[in-house]
Amino acid sequence: MATMEVVLRRAWVEKLLGGRSAASRITATNDAQDYRLRALPNEEILFWRKRIDNSRVSRKPDRGTRRAAFGLLTAAGLCVIAVLAMLAPGSYSRMAGYEIHALEQERARLLNERKLLEVEQARLASVGRLETLARRWRFVDPRPGQSIHLHAPPAADGALAWNPPNR
């Protein structure tokens, strides 16, 4: 029975020699074997498969390990919470900063819009424009004598109204 070493060596030698004839290869092998030590006892390793049934094996609960694991998890969680607690105010502050900045811009925009509307209103209500419109609609100034003077009775509290005499 050839040992593992012999098998491997043969394969290596064959690979090394490549295209030489089988006889020369054997000769070379034999020559080489003459100078080698013999295989040591129990050198061979034999592998075989054995079926093991572990279905009835149960693991013994290791309370110490579990406690350690939980402790580790708790510590990690606390660390995370602590980190979050440290970061949260800054983050909220930053978010609030964005919001405040956006609101400031919105306020400025709305104020400017109001100013633009005031400008537009002033343009529309300018005397020159009203005069032009009055001309277009052929309005006329009341002539002298075309005005009505109403004298309110004391009970009228300053209110002036057209009160026909027959009522």
């Binding site: 002539r143 075309q146 109403l150 009160n163």
Partner: peptide, 13 residues
Amino acid sequence: MGPNGHAVCIEVP
């Protein structure tokens, strides 16, 4: 015009 003797002076256009 006007009740209670209060004059309402009208210049009618």
